[in-house]
Design a protein around this nucleic acid. Structure first.
Length: 503
RNA sequence: GGCCCGUUCGUCUAGGGGUUAGGACACGUCCCUUUCACGGAUGAAACACGGGUUCGAUUCCCGUACGGGCUACCA
């Protein structure tokens, strides 16, 4: 049977980076087995639905390259893939389960249950308490019929039989055992007619032919209920295998990574920026920060999984090859932003200049800078080994785009000396006569010229740098000169000399 | 509180009954470089604790501690 896996997020806002990792592992597993990767939108909670979240999820998957084979926005013949469009299906199955004796109607109001929980801290709706509550197991048949006919608000609950051991063979954790007596009678169908996660999930996974459920660890405790549902429906024979992923933890302190941690620690925790109704509900994204999708994926892949060995850099194809559920770690992984930055740096270094030019162009454009391909590619070549993020090219390399307006005064005081004027002028003149104007020629030629003229490179080189860039940081003097070209180089040097002379 | 899961350098991790416990990020030092980086070399840095089992346990078992998750008509 061919592998079918799904990524099933809830459109309650921006999808954080942990969600992308879950999608990634599902994707890798599907690709490796020649299987199908499905996107299902779990929007069964009307109250938490956030407009735009679904589009965000799809865009985030496209950006990271985790493109589904089937699902909302991607076609497929097992749809619809949006749970709110499947309401009638769940209702049918919920009622089937009642008929089969594995579920029942319950009429207790949320308020009544709330009171019970307040009265008894550990109150649970289960095999012990249900005989004293308002449901189709305790009420006379006529009363149940009447309530149903009158449309009295009701839910359908799973009838968990006590005294049974439920064993789950988790692909990551091995055998996990639960005692049914400790399980509650989970609500399957809510009073508004929508299913809860538990019902919708099992029905959909079954109907969509899902073979492996790879999801976050927060679902491990309810997996026992899910097994009971498969049994209740008589689907145990085709029940998917489960793999529960460890969670991603906060960069510092305790607990799992949350939305707010981005602002708290000054780093993005979302793949894409999210514009909420208020600044507090808006979040920065990896994409907007200037991460390459490949770097983001490589970083996430290794957060909780490693194939063994010492390899750090993995292309998507290599990940597909190397991936295995057995090598997923069991403990939570702390979100390590420094490592993410390092990956990005490595990927930028490994990207060719022409491709970088295309990525930089919008940023150069926004600043009103030159945007021709050759120049941007040259800038990329000069800066790629000293940047971390894409915007750094134009932000740190501003002097490549703009004329120098200010010179590092401290360095100027230290390096400039009026006695150097003739040497500096000679060097400017020599630059003007060099050809070809390329770094490989310029560097030896100029150094030879200085040696022949009795000019100490140590006196002049720092000044040339200052003259060309205004700052002591940056690419090699001759490399910059070559990118500027003869005319611009001489212009910058002359302008700088005038400034050095106090004009 | 109850149930479930986990625990190797600060972080991500490899490993696995006998190893100098390996790599990467971050950090220190040095080299390269008359800048800043890249790169190279090198250093400091870990098997939570207590009992077993065993000739031998970081590795297997049991406890304890600590961490995490769940405990909604949320997912």
């Amino acid at each position: 049977m061919s592998v079918r896996v799904r990524f099933a997020p809830s459109p309650t806002g921006a999808l954080h980076i942990g969600g992308i990792r879950t999608a990634l592992y599902n994707y890798l597993f599907a690709r490796q087995h020649g299987g199908t990767f499905i996107l299902r939108i779990e929007d069964t909670d009307q109250n938490r639905y956030v407009p735009g979240a679904e589009q965000y999820i799809i865009e985030a998957l496209r950006w990271t390259g985790l493109v589904p084979d089937e699902g909302v926005g991607f076609g497929g013949d097992k749809g619809p893939y949006r749970q709110s469009d499947r309401k009638a299906i769940y209702q049918k199955y919920a009622h089937d389960l009642v008929r089969l004796g594995h579920a029942y109607y319950a009429f207790d109001t949320p308020e009544e249950l709330e009171r019970l929980r307040e009265a008894e801290a550990n109150f649970t709706y289960n095999h012990r308490t249900r005989p004293s509550l308002q449901n189709s197991l305790t009420l006379p048949v006529e009363a149940v019929q009447r309530h149903l006919a009158e449309g009295k608000p009701s839910v359908i609950r799973l009838k968990v039989e006590p005294d049974k051991s439920i064993r789950i063979e988790d692909l990551i954790r091995g055998e996990v055992v639960f005692q049914s007596s400790e399980l509650d009678d989970k609500v399957l169908l809510k009073a508004d007619g929508m299913p809860t996660y538990h019902l919708a999930n099992i029905v959909d996974d079954h109907l969509m032919g899902i073979t492996h459920v790879i999801r976050g660890e927060e679902w491990l405790p309810s997996t026992a209920h899910h097994v009971l549902l498969y049994r209740g429906f008589g689907w145990e024979g085709t029940m998917p295998r489960f793999a529960h992923l460890p969670l991603i933890l906060k960069p510092e302190g305790n607990g799992k990574l949350s939305k707010r941690d981005g602002a708290k620690f000054g780093m993005p925790v979302f793949p894409l920026a999210w514009a909420g109704p208020t600044p507090e509900e808006s979040f920065p994204g990896f994409r907007e920060a200037g991460f390459l999708p490949e770097a983001t994926i490589n970083f996430l892949a290794l957060l909780g999984w490693h194939p063994g060995g010492d390899q750090e850099m993995f292309s998507m194809d290599e990940l597909v090859q190397a991936f295995s559920v057995e090598h997923i770690g069991k403990s939570g992984a702390r979100f390590d932003y420094e490592k993410a930055k390092w990956f990005n740096q490595r990927y930028i270094q490994a990207t060719d200049n022409a491709a970088l030019a295309d990525m930089i162009r919008p940023m150069a454009e926004a600043k009103g800078y030159r945007t021709d391909s050759q120049f941007l590619a040259d800038v990329a070549g000069l800066m790629k080994e000293r940047v971390t993020f894409l915007p750094d090219f134009v932000e740190q390399g501003y002097y490549l785009f703009e004329p120098v307006r200010t010179y590092d005064n401290e360095m100027l005081q230290k390096r400039w000396n009026p006695a150097l004027q003739p040497a500096f002028e000679a060097v400017i003149e020599q630059f003007g006569s060099e050809s070809p104007f390329e770094a490989v020629h310029l560097e030896p030629a100029m150094k030879r010229f200085m040696a022949d003229s009795g000019i100490k490179p140590g006196d002049i080189l720092p000044l040339l740098r200052l003259a060309l860039a205004g700052t002591m940081k940056g690419p090699g003097v001759f490399e910059m000169a070559a990118v500027f070209g003869k005319e611009e180089t001489v212009r910058r040097l002359s302008a700088a000399l005038a400034h050095f002379l106090g004009e």
